[in-house]
Amino acid sequence: MSVDAGSAAISARGPRIIIYGLLILFAVFYLLPLYVMLVTSLKPLSEIQSGNMLQLPQAPSFYAWEKAWGAACIGVTCEGLKGFFWNSIRMVVPAVTISTILGALNGYVLTKWKFRGHKLIFGLMLFGCFIPFQVVLVPMAQVLGRLGLASSTPGLVLVHIVYGLGFTTLFFRNFYVAFPDELVRAAMMDGAGFFRIFWRILLPASLPIIVVTVIYQFTNIWNDFLFGASFTSGDAAPMTVALNNLVSSSTGVKEYNVDMAAALIAALPTLLVYVVAGRYFVRGLMAGAVKG
């Protein structure tokens, strides 16, 4: 969202110094953990144990990053996070793609081809977004087992598609609701059918919501822990689960610098997406959030 000159801002006559001071204070609060993670990951263990965690590293080194990526012990294997990182990638890409496509089609149907009960169906799908996932863990584990997908990336892909559908449908539905019906009617009179109207008329205008949905789903699925922890074990785990295992393992010397490097590696993809396309993400959020 751009700074809107005509917005409801009130020009405070009060002491603006205080306002800026407070904002900077808050900014420090939000930035501090990230800063600490970063400097810690660049320090050798000795410096961490002897020094102040806020201090910049005396001799920054990527030793901890290299170890976290390729040599840290997670469970019984000591090959770092790299395998798990690829697990997450292999999980995220198909899950995001498929759930976004389905959501777009659902949103199209629910706004432009309404039929009796469309609202109930939407309500049912929407409620699926809110349920505490604890309530589906055991049945899901059983079903994945029966399907032969237990502790596998395809299994997690399935899970994330299923429980992401509500969100993607919601996003596209709210976007397409504002898409003029007359365009659909015009295309219909021009002789375009169901898929042609979608493909030629709606989809080319959907880039903003596609970006929002993809970013949202990517963040959501990448960051998931509950499903990963429940349905995978060992080498099949996604990044978040591996990170937790690495950090909470209690064998040997606690290498805080490796922990922090690992956490940063786990956070990097989503942070990168946020930095590159955060504007879209926030805009989508805002547009979706409170335009009553």
Binding site: S7, S11, A27, A263, A266, F281
Partner: peptide
């Protein structure tokens, strides 16, 4: 605070928002 025609609002907003991009596991670890 941000609504007071703040100079540099565009730079501050992402600072407050970025934590939501990262995993709770990372947050907890940090």
């Amino acid at each position: 605070l941000l609504d007071q025609r703040i100079r540099g609002e565009g730079g501050l907003r992402p600072i407050f928002l970025y934590p939501m991009a990262i995993s709770f596991i990372v947050t907890g670890t940090a």
